[in-house]
């Protein structure tokens, strides 16, 4: 069952065409992450779903209902803002219950639902505090609590974790994942952080410059990126791209493809060997990062971008040494002149 249908949605700000003919379907209960570089239109798309931006053309449908002309308050949605948007003049309890207050719910129900949400997020002891007396993580929880109290059809998140420090971000990410399991509500989540996208999403929508580049499950996008943009955007460290005519590259005939202009291989899909004829690529080690669990080599093979290799564990190969790389054949990606992935092996 579809929860949200986007049908040829366009958005223009004056002469600037920021979203181009977007058509998507989100299933009920699904966790969808919109991801892309800043300025790609993902936040605008979310704000249109929320009703905060008018839709320039196309149909926005919730279930069976066309909602283009509905006010935000009529759409039965809740949204967590990047800035949290807590009401500074209300304490936590009123912040949580404000939507119920507006709907004139009785005190008992308000009390019940507020404390339920506070319980889920561990806010019970903070109900009397005002937002300015809360830490970043606590504010984040209140913003989520405010959405939970609503029990909406759809949850919207607009980069909710980007104002938190690294440790809290991981903690809250897990919290959001648990929340989705617990509530089973449709969630649409915008982020520019690909780790958040990979860990949280049932499906990821990768956007770039107002277009949808690819839609799929995280592992699908990781294993079978449709084009250079998606291939380069997801994964860390980034996928290596080598031009088909790079002199350092010597692929066996079986791995090449006549139309391939660019070959892509992820750093973790490479083995290090001696710089001999068996190697697919030869270069010298420019920089080594030893993380303990992994070792990352930045290899100079004559191109502008270093070639990055990640090997598990501690590898003692030293700086300046010449080494060879062997690509795992199944994980080699081939892209044609348009940057599209060539699917047949």
């Amino acid at each position: 069952m579809t929860a949200i249908t986007l049908n040829s949605i366009n958005k223009s700000f004056g002469p600037v065409h920021v979203l181009k003919d977007i058509s998507l379907e989100f299933n009920k209960g699904e966790f969808v992450v919109l991801v892309g570089p800043s300025g790609c239109g993902k936040s605008t798309l979310l704000r249109m779903i929320a009703g905060l931006e008018p839709v320039s053309s196309g149909d926005l449908i919730f279930g069976e209902t066309r909602v283009n002309d509905l006010e935000p308050r009529e759409r039965d949605i809740a949204m967590v803002f990047q800035s949290y948007a807590l009401y500074p003049h209300m304490n936590v309890e009123r912040n949580l219950g404000f939507s119920l207050e507006l709907r004139k719910r009785d005190a008992a129900e308000k009390q019940k639902r507020t404390s339920h949400a506070a319980g889920i997020l561990g806010l019970d002891k903070l109900l009397d505090r005002f937002p300015k007396a809360l830490s970043g993580g606590q504010r984040q929880r209140v913003a989520m609590g405010r959405a939970i109290v609503r029990d909406p059809q759809i949850f919207l998140f607009d980069e909710p974790l980007s104002n938190l420090d690294a440790a809290l971000r991981i903690e809250m990410r897990i919290e959001i994942a648990k929340l989705h399991q617990r509530l089973g509500t449709t969630m649409v989540y915008v982020t520019h952080d690909q780790v958040e996208a990979m860990t949280l999403a049932d499906r990821i929508v990768v956007m770039n410059a107002g277009n949808v580049e690819q839609v799929g499950t995280p592992l699908d996008l990781y294993s079978n990126p449709a084009n250079l943009f998606v291939a380069g955007f997801l994964g860390s460290p980034k996928m290596n791209f080598v031009s088909h005519d790079d002199p350092a590259l010597s692929l066996p005939k079986a791995l090449t493809h006549p139309k391939a202009k660019t070959y892509g291989i992820r750093p973790e899909h490479i083995q290090v060997t001696a710089p001999d004829d068996n190697a697919h690529l030869i270069g010298t080690i420019d920089v080594v990062e030893r993380l303990g669990s992994d070792t990352i080599f930045y290899i100079n093979h004559g191109a502008k971008q270093p070639f990055v290799v990640r090997v598990p564990g501690i590898d003692r190969t030293a700086l300046g040494e010449k080494i060879g790389c062997i690509f795992q054949p199944n994980d080699l990606h081939r892209f044609n002149a348009d940057g599209q992935s060539i699917s047949e092996k």
Partner: peptide, 9 residues
């Protein structure tokens, strides 16, 4: 726990 909302289109 569901909320009756005025969702008349």
């Amino acid at each position: 726990m569901t909320m009756a909302l005025p969702t008349s289109p």
